[in-house]
């Protein structure tokens, strides 16, 4: 069996648990790559709206951090279609200082963002967070790439109603099920665009800026906007 086939089979063995296939894939990758967290982010071409699956709550927070900042290795991997490595976060990473500082605070020493792609079409990124600094060795790198391929297969198969049925996961009845989505971010973006009389693009930037200054996640801020606890007028 191919390595990707082996990964997919092991996920199927666990299917039927409370976790969805994308979540199981993140967990399995976390285990096998000796990572502290693994996250999967799917992005629209404008790299704003995204779906997230994560190995656990801390991985989910790390993914949301990039959504809050609107930048980071995951967004970069998606944008460029290339692997983005921050192997020495402690060594004064210059590119995304705010992001890197947050990661160090959470005990992450290195992050690797692998683009999910099919040919030239970019879908998102698989993010591997490790406690210890240092590049991935050859074995881990090739294993990570197999997980990337498996993630693409899972992602595409979730698009097919017939295949969702074979997976036997009745909760997966929507193309984006199996992922955590944050509709409140979109809703808040719409609200802020009316409140501040700005474009949707700028409204999202306002939300991000507010979250950054308040040191909160964009999701918390969006919930406050939707509940009318924060107003951008």
């Amino acid at each position: 069996m191919t390595p990707v086939g082996r990964i997919l089979m092991s996920l199927m063995d666990e299917a039927g648990s409370d976790l969805t296939l994308p979540e199981l894939l993140c967990r399995s990758a976390k285990r096998e790559l000796d990572a502290v967290a693994v996250g999967l982010a799917v992005m629209a071409p404008d790299s704003t709206s995204e779906l997230v699956a994560a190995s656990d709550q801390s991985a989910h927070e790390l993914e949301v951090l990039q959504l809050t900042l609107g930048e980071g290795p995951c967004v970069e991997a998606f944008r460029t279609g290339r692997l983005v490595q921050l192997a020495e976060l402690g060594a004064g990473e210059q590119r995304w200082p705010a992001y890197s500082a947050h990661l160090l605070e959470r005990g992450v020493g290195a992050v690797f963002a692998f683009p999910l792609r099919i040919g030239g079409i970019r879908l998102g990124a698989l993010d591997v967070y490790r406690t210890r600094a240092g590049a991935l060795d050859d074995d881990d790198l090739s294993l990570a790439l197999h997980f990337v391929d498996a993630a693409v297969v899972v992602l595409l198969h979730l698009q097919d109603p017939a295949l969702r049925d074979t997976l036997g996961d009745r909760r997966l009845d929507d193309a984006v099920d199996g992922f955590t989505t944050h509709p409140e971010v979109h809703q808040a973006t719409g609200m802020v665009s009316v409140q501040a009389v700005v474009s949707l693009h700028d409204a999202l930037l306002l939300l991000r800026a507010h979250a950054y200054v308040a040191d909160r996640s964009i999701i918390e801020v969006a919930r406050d906007v939707v509940a009318r606890r924060i107003d951008f007028r």
Binding site: V42, M43, A44, T48, S49, E50, L51, V176, T181, P183, E184, V185, H186, Q187, A188, T189, G190, M191, V192, S193, V194, L200, V226
Partner: peptide, 15 residues
Amino acid sequence: LTTRALIGQAQGIVM
């Protein structure tokens, strides 16, 4: 993805 974003944003505008 696009549909979810559009509907969410429109919801916010209407709200």
